[in-house]
Amino acid sequence: MLEYLVSAEFYQIMLFYVYSFILLGAAMAVVTMRNSIYSALFLILSFFSAAALWLLLEAEFLALTLVLVYVGAVMVLFLFVIMMLDIKVKPNKGMSSYTKVGLFVALLMLVEMMMLLGKKLIPALPQDDLVKHIKGHSNVKEVAESLYTQYVLPFELASVILLVAIVAAILLTLRKRKDYNHVKPESQVHVKATNNRMRVVKMEAEKGNDIGGDS
């Protein structure tokens, strides 16, 4: 027993549970926080914990990319946008009736699922050991190989989905401003001296007497 407590496997499993709980808690907090800044910060925490889980699986490249891309780039932009927007934080008014019913249903489902699976699930799971790579194993190479050969079609499809997301976002948000004073060069070029530039205005000649007269 004591031997197991000091073994590497035990620490690995313990770390797994610690990071998983942080991940789940942070994900819960993202949804329930009233202040969107806190939500975004908790999202960063959950990314970090997910990266730690990947490290446990010896997927170092993925873990680093997650931190670099999501935490470093995406979330910073996200925070930036949230701070630019003028969002008023509404005070927490306690649980609404929806939340109570929702929590009740969720708990009920959890208990049901545990009763259903509980004992029977454990033998059904594949009993493989944790991933152990040999020394000099290249993570990057493995990712590249499966991404660009085995899963090249889903990869390309994902790019199409991103394109659709861009098109949809622009379609739904782009609005021309009404007080837009920008000059269009292409219409400037077309201006002709005879009928566009000069305007002849006919008006009645004014009587000379009125000029300067006070009467």
Partner: peptide, 16 residues
Amino acid sequence: ITLYLGLELLALSSYA
């Protein structure tokens, strides 16, 4: 995976 991506492509276009 492919099926799911097809579904998402359709769904995303439909939402827009």
